[in-house]
Every structure is written in C-alpha cells, then in structure tokens.
Design a protein around this nucleic acid. Structure first.
Length: 422
RNA sequence: GGAGAGGUGGCAGAGUGGUAAUGCAGCGGAUUGCUAAUCCGUAGUCGCCUAACAGCGGCUCCCGAGUUCGAGUCUCGGUCUCUCCGCCA
C-alpha cells in the first residue's frame, strides 16, 4: 500500500509511472487525492468540536467539585448541539477513512524507473544468460517420463490421495527433495541469513501485511472453521515477523531464510504449463527475506540476485536473469528479477526464483518501522526471493543430467543425497 | 470441547467515573578532572500552523458499539492470550 502522503505530493508522477504496468491510475488517484482533502477538512472540524467538548467537560468537573451544581447544570444543557456535530463528523470521518482504505488497496506499487514497459513475460528484459545448454546424442526425455521410469515421483498416487498438483515423491525422489532442502538452507545460512521455521497457516492480519489480502484470497487455501490461510510462500509468515515492530537501526540489514511447503490454488491455470512439476498446488521452497534501511534496499536486491546465481551455478544449471516488465510485475513489487533455469527436454526456461524489492509498500501495511538518526519514524524496506523453489530445479536437474543409462546428481548435492547417480 | 483469569506506553506495573502514577531500559540534554552518580526532558498517530524548527489541538489504556457533561474505569458484542480439566502427537 502506498503512503497517503506520498500520493498527495506526487500524484501526477505516480499516475505516469503506473502506466508502465498498464495500470490506469488517473481516476483512482484523483479520487484518493480529493477524498484525502475532504478527510482533512472533516478532521479539522471534528478536532475543534471535540476540543470544545473537552473544555466544557473539564469545566463541569471543576464546578461539581467546588459544589456549584446549578452552574454545572447550565453547562450541561449547552452540550447537546455540540455533541450532535461531533457525532456527525465522526461518522463522516469513519466513512471517508473506510473508502480511502479500500481505494489505497487497489493501487499497485510504483515501478522502479528501470522497469521496462511491456505486457507479459514475453516483454521481460533478459539481462544475462549463463552456462551451456546440454547436448544429447539421443532424444532427451521430459522429467515426468524420467520420474516415472526411475520411480522418483508418483503423480497418480498424489492424484488419488489429494488431487492434481499434489505429487507423491518416492525413494530417491523423496531423498532428493530432502537434499535440496539441506543444501539450500546451508548455503543461505552461510551467506548470513538467519534460519526460521514459521507456521504454515496464517491469520488474516498476516495475509494483509504482505499484500495477499484482500483481493487475492482466491490464490490461497482457506480453512473455513478457523479462518486461517495456508501460506503460498514463506515470505508471508517471515516478513510478518516485523509487523508492528519498531526496528533498531543497527539491526539492519535483517536477513532470514526459511524452508516451507507452499500451497497455491493456481485458479485459472491449465494446459501445458501444468505438466509434471511445472506448476503445482503444493511444493517446497527455501525463501530468503531481507528488511533493510530504505537507502540500502537496492544494494540488498543486488546481493540477493548474486546469491541466487551462486547456488544455481553450484547446481551446474544453465540459467538466465530477467528483469520483469511492468505488465509482469507483481502487485506489491517495485522491481523484480526472475531467475530461470534451462530445462533441456522441454526446451524451456523455468522460473525458479523471483527476487523483489517492495520498498515501503509492504512495510506500510506491516508498520515495520525504525527511528532514524534524527529521531523520526520511517518505514523500512522489505525484499524477498526464492532460493530456491524445488520442483522446477528438480525438473531441470533430471532433464539436463540424463544419460543413456541414468541421471547424474550435481556434485554439490551428493553429500546430501548419498548417491551420485540415479 | 468445559471452567476460570486477563489484555494499560520498549519492558515491568498502579489506577473502579473527573481526563493515564511509578520503576527499569533506550535516546537527548545539564552538571562533571575521567568514570560513576545525580538532575531535566523524552510514546505513537492524525490534523492546524510553519521554509524548517517550534507551537497548538484531536485520537489512542485489545477492537467495536452504548450509557454519561465526562469512560482505562460502567453495559453489550467481538477478538486474542494465559491457567485448570478433558482429548491428544
């Protein structure tokens, strides 16, 4: 959520920059600005009236104390009209606030100046491509065939137990998942991220804090009875650690990592994209999160990108880095880099990480603040990224490393799998 | 699931209708051979007024409604936490 004061002072610039994400903000921003003006006028009136009330009440109190009951009664009689006015303006203020809140929730984050214009992922700016695509002297098989052949994943069983998009990993497949978890967490801790193991169900306040709620509840599984949500990413519980927290400036940068399963309804997905491990309702991921001083957040973003590069390189996977265009940029993000690994048999780039700077957009909802050197409260900046999502990494490892008689495990994982070949 | 207790400023903790004690910590200042000690100030938020600082005012004692000239205090609803019992990994 953008700050009201920021909108008030920069309305035109905001409208202009939102165009990059194909968001026409003219109407809603104009409405916000005019409502804000009305709100302030109303509050000024209300404040004056309430101040008047307070004075009279105080006076009556004094009169009662000194036994001047008659005089007190006179003052009492005077309050009726004032009370009505207070009530009226109070109601009006509440109404305006509610409306304003609803409108503010509709405005996405302002894209960073370097975000390219564009409609879809096809317009993302590929910044760099690293590594060699593998070559084969036979027809490489897609991972879903390999998974079946080597009994790594049983999609049918997952289907039976739960439904589509909930695979059951078996044998070496399961062991590989565990190895990825171990490897990713160890690397992150090595890089200075403090591990947390958060709850997998979150309440409504938490969902609002990071921007999943309101409006995007359709993407999350919801437990009806207890009104809790299954997390779509560890970003949600981890970033919410800092909801309503006043951070000490010397704590910056705060760095966390965490492994969690993630649950996504993926309403509306269909077709080829959902084949095999490409798009699941439940998957595992290690997430990295940073909370930083506003002046340091882009530095942190770069650091996170190079960290994620380093682990992909250790897994010996060809990858590329994309700067998301306005049309593909998430609602809450100001700048996002996607990391995509090449998966040979599908001949596709698979998104395995999305690294974003939200600037103050989340912090504003979260009220994640710190006192700066001048003693002023300021919003912190929040960032996060996948490091990494397991299924597509697994898909790429299987497809890229297949040979005629098996699949080679990247060296970095061998200490955790206990085998170097499938 | 049953019963009870309780949510007060960063923390601790008073306050049963008259406008939020006190202690600790942090920060700023004063004093000061140094250190220690001492003293003073210091919550957040919204608004008015400012070039800015300052100043003034409103709101905030979990949330919402109500009673009252006046609510942390009384009434109703909601919510969260804790304790005991039951169930259970």
């Amino acid at each position: 959520m953008l700050q009201l004061s920021y909108i008030r002072d920069n309305a035109n610039e905001i409208i202009e920059r939102l165009k990059v994400r194909n968001f026409d903000g003219q109407e809603v921003i104009d409405y916000i600005v005019s409502l804000d003006k009305e709100r302030r006028e109303t509050q000024t009136k209300l404040d004056t009236e309430q101040g008047e009330m307070n004075k009279i009440s105080k006076k009556i109190g004094e009169l009662f104390k000194s036994g001047k009951r008659d005089e007190a009664e006179e003052y009492k009689a005077k309050t009726g009209e004032l009370k009505e006015a207070v009530k009226k303006h109070h109601t009006k203020l509440n109404e305006i606030d509610e409306k304003l809140q609803g409108l503010l929730y509709q405005v996405p984050n302002v894209p960073n100046k370097i975000v390219p214009a564009g409609k879809s992922d096809a317009d993302n700016e590929i910044i760099e491509e690293v590594g060699q695509k593998p070559t084969f002297d036979f027809e490489p098989k897609p991972h879903w065939d390999l998974a079946k052949e080597f009994e790594l994943i049983d999609f049918e069983l997952g289907n039976k137990i739960t439904g589509a998009g909930f695979p059951l990993y078996t044998g070496k497949g399961a062991r590989l998942q565990r190895a990825l978890k171990e490897f990713f967490l160890n690397e992150a801790i090595e890089a200075g991220y403090v591990e947390v193991m958060p709850p997998l169900l979150v309440n409504e306040d938490t969902g609002k804090g990071t921007g999943q709620l309101p409006d995007k509840e359709g993407q999350m599984y919801h437990t009806e009875l207890d009104h809790l949500f299954l997390i779509p990413t560890a970003e949600v519980p981890i970033t919410n650690i800092y909801r309503d927290v006043i951070i000490k400036e010397d704590q910056f940068p705060i760095k966390h990592c965490g492994y969690t399963p993630c649950f996504r309804r993926e309403a509306g997905s269909y077709g080829k994209d959902v084949r095999g491990l490409n798009r699941l309702h439940q998957f595992d991921k290690v997430e990295i999160v940073q909370v930083t001083h506003p002046e340091k957040s882009y530095e942190a973003l770069d650091e996170m990108v190079s960290y994620v590069r380093s682990i992909i390189e250790k897994l010996e996977l060809p990858y590329r880095v994309a700067r998301l265009c306005g049309g593909d940029l998430g609602f809450t993000s100001a700048l996002t880099y996607d990391m995509e690994v090449y998966s040979a048999a599908q001949d596709k780039w698979l998104e395995v990480s999305s690294i974003s700077n939200f600037e103050t957009f989340q912090a504003n909802r979260l009220k994640a603040r710190f006192k700066d050197k001048n003693g002023k409260m300021q919003l912190a900046h929040t960032l996060n990224g996948s490091a990494l999502a397991f299924p597509r990494i697994l898909a790429a490892i299987l497809e890229n490393n297949q040979t005629k008689d098996g699949i080679n495990i990247p060296k970095a994982l061998v200490p955790f799998t206990g085998f170097d070949k499938i």
